[in-house]
Design a protein around this nucleic acid. Sequence first.
DNA 1: TATTTGTCGAGCGATTCTTAAAGGTTTCTG
DNA 2: CAGAAACCTTTAAGAATCGCTCGACAAATA
Lengths: 228, 228
Amino acid sequence: MKADSMETKLKIAEAAIALFTSQGFKGTTVRQISKKAGVNLALISYHFGGKKGLLEELITSFFEGYIRRIEIIYHTSNSATVKGSFIELVEALLIYQQRNLPLARFVYREMTLDSTLVRELMSTYLVKEKYFIQTLFEKGMKKKEFRRQPVDFLTIQFKDMMMLPFLHPLYLSEVYQITAETETFIKPYKKWMVNWFDKCVCQSERRNPLLSAVQKPLFGSIQEKWGS
Amino acid sequence: MKADSMETKLKIAEAAIALFTSQGFKGTTVRQISKKAGVNLALISYHFGGKKGLLEELITSFFEGYIRRIEIIYHTSNSATVKGSFIELVEALLIYQQRNLPLARFVYREMTLDSTLVRELMSTYLVKEKYFIQTLFEKGMKKKEFRRQPVDFLTIQFKDMMMLPFLHPLYLSEVYQITAETETFIKPYKKWMVNWFDKCVCQSERRNPLLSAVQKPLFGSIQEKWGS
DNA sequence: TATTTGTCGAGCGATTCTTAAAGGTTTCTG
DNA sequence: CAGAAACCTTTAAGAATCGCTCGACAAATA
């Protein structure tokens, strides 16, 4: 393959990502892509085997990189604590998603649809992702580092928190004037997640009996124990 | 308006919601809608002023009901604590979204796009939503009921947790075999959110100095104080 | 030189949403 | 009850756009 050809293929991919992100896959035409990429219409079919092929190649490449980063940390993390591994994971995934922000956004949106492609992607990539994260949580619980609690919800919430800023960047910027694209976002958000780990995941410190005695009557009707 | 007409309008709306939810707005044709609704093609344009009008009417009606429920609780909650008001809110919104699950799912997905419609909806409904929730959090902090922390992230995470099960029901069912449609989901998920409030939002109990002395060295490099 | 590879313009066939015109039905009014 | 009016539905066709392919041409390769 010529270098020129590789370049046009990249130009097509970039234009497609930008358009898919803001307009959705179905809302984007191949003509728009070819125009934005400054490339002939027929080249999209030539390089990607059509619009659908372009979509699949983009999504697959995103998930490949995503899963690879999880696997690497899962197998080679040398943190003393499980929480340490998680923090490595958080950092790696935040950076990866930020670097591929528009791609991530449109992939996540597409995954809320109901197609055979989506089901396939879920059973290959997301089931794998679930396995790694859930196993990490269970490891932390066995080591008494994490508090015992429903591991399903925990995994889901973790994944969701990792996804949030990249699925809703327009919401963040329009309503909160927060932009997920800059470096100034990653740091505080990572901090936020670490705080969440300390408060919600890790083993809580022994309670002060006086304080809890004061608070209990107020919330008693709702604040029940887990696992009932 | 005749009863017959109202009925066809409803049939169109229901069919549209189902199809939009699984295929997306752009991925659905008016023919599919008319066929599924058992209604003539042109009636969609007649009743809703076209496919786009149908979309806007569905989304608007969803947000109207959504905001109304927030406002009611905001203005009439008689809970002794702010946390109590929040729990009322959680319950009301979970039920509302569950009752309109397919509609909610497709509305949330559509809101991740980048159109003038989405921007308008954000500036009318989501800004309002942010105001109510954020004010509640600040109220809780002033009363020293909630711990002081960045209120932006808190509001966002709250909203996100409220949205999660309804934006990703396919993910939940495919990967976790959890279905957000049944009553058996609402209760544990509500419990989960209450637990999150206790751990992450409410004022934490005084720490046991011995335990924190043991743990600090391990996480010290990352676990910094807020507001730095 | 022969062959593969990349690019281009033109256009095909299918499908999109919408609308115009007309037919049918119900409701209101005298 | 008759007839006008408003409302609902259908048929049919409109105009635009969709993704994709074909054949020609240029350029690099062997």
